[in-house]
């Protein structure tokens, strides 16, 4: 088993457990590479990758670009604000124009759920989903699971709670799917207004009491409240949200055991977690960022080897 079962990375739901194991084993190797003095390997000198971002992104875009460059791929970047999309060009035309310049792989972020699935059916390139609306963000979920595996030895059997805005989150969905695939137990926690009514169909349980959720878990993955995606107020005020769903040092220290704190970023300090929690020893937030590069190198490398 040395290759992925898929041609694209469109979402965790299209992967199997062996795929995840293979990505993690490959990432182990690349993590060692990026900690060398020469952080680069020549693996993908003949591959050209387009990073196409129809939504704003800082860390994901940088992480992908760094991963691509450390694999020696040629990289072009494209964002919607500087594109012909604003002139009315369709997604297929935009991407096909870029592919005509002999691009092998597309990393795309898009505001519409399913945009990457749609694209994969209509263009001839390997597609990596860097976030499509509230659907999936597979590389984030992979790096989150990888970080749990690194910190706790394995993912299987671990209790993970995802706290916050589940409703608008692609990170939550991909994380749930990835964690379940690896045998973790998953709860979601947040105000009922920000938890999809049918979330339990994904095999998770809902807990609205943060303290109970934290006492149950080994890992708490804290999500940001995505105000930019809300058409009405789902809770009365940030202050009231924080009172119920914010993690501070006092709460953390009052728990029965020491839990791991994660956050996909960007953090709203003082809202979902306080600074002293984000910067504490229990937090692996910066480790997640580092692992993000290794995971993305692994995904790109494995998909590129299928092109070859």
């Amino acid at each position: 088993m040395s290759e992925l079962s898929v041609k694209h990375l469109l979402g965790i739901k299209y992967l199997n457990k062996n795929d995840i194991d293979l990505i993690f084993e490959t990432a182990d190797h690349f993590k060692e590479v990026i900690n060398r003095s020469i952080k680069k390997v020549p693996s993908l000198r003949d591959i050209t990758i387009a990073n196409i971002f129809f939504e704003n992104s800082t860390r994901t875009k940088l992480s992908f670009e760094l991963a691509e460059k450390r694999l020696s791929a040629d990289v072009i970047n494209f964002s919607a604000s500087q594109s012909s999309v604003k002139k009315g060009e369709t997604l297929i035309d935009t991407v096909n124009n870029i592919l005509s310049m002999k691009v092998d792989m597309v990393v795309m972020r898009h505001p519409n759920p399913g945009a990457c699935v749609f694209l994969s059916k209509h263009v001839n390139a390997s597609i990596i989903n860097a976030g499509d609306g509230a659907h999936e963000h597979p590389t984030q979920a992979l790096l989150d699971s990888y970080s749990i595996r690194e910190k706790l030895g394995e993912v299987s059997g671990k209790n993970v709670v995802i706290v916050g805005d589940i409703l608008h989150s692609r990170v939550a969905l991909s994380n749930i799917l990835a964690l379940k695939l690896q045998g973790a137990n998953v709860k979601v926690c947040g105000p009922k207004t920000l938890i999809p009514k049918h979330i339990e169909s994904l095999g998770v349980t809902v807990e609205t009491d943060l303290r109970k959720a934290l006492n149950w878990c080994d890992v708490a993955n804290m999500l940001r409240v995505q105000n930019e995606r809300m058409d009405i107020s789902y809770f009365p005020s940030t202050r009231e949200y924080t009172q119920q769903f914010g993690v501070n040092k006092a709460l953390l220290e009052s728990l029965d055991k020491e839990i791991v704190i994660m956050h996909p970023g960007p953090i709203n300090r003082g809202v979902e977690i306080t600074s002293d929690v984000a910067d504490s020893n229990q937090s692996i937030i910066l480790g997640q960022v580092e692992n993000g590069v290794a995971i993305r190198m692994a995904v790109i490398y494995l998909l590129a080897s299928k092109i070859k």
């Binding site: 399913g114 509230a134 969905l173 994904l202 058409d231």
Partner: peptide
């Protein structure tokens, strides 16, 4: 609201906004 498909387990797993 901005729902476009049935609200249910499918809309949840596809990230599409649901119409209950």
């Amino acid at each position: 609201g901005k729902g476009i498909v049935n609200e249910g387990s499918v809309s949840t797993s596809l990230g599409l906004k649901g119409i209950p």
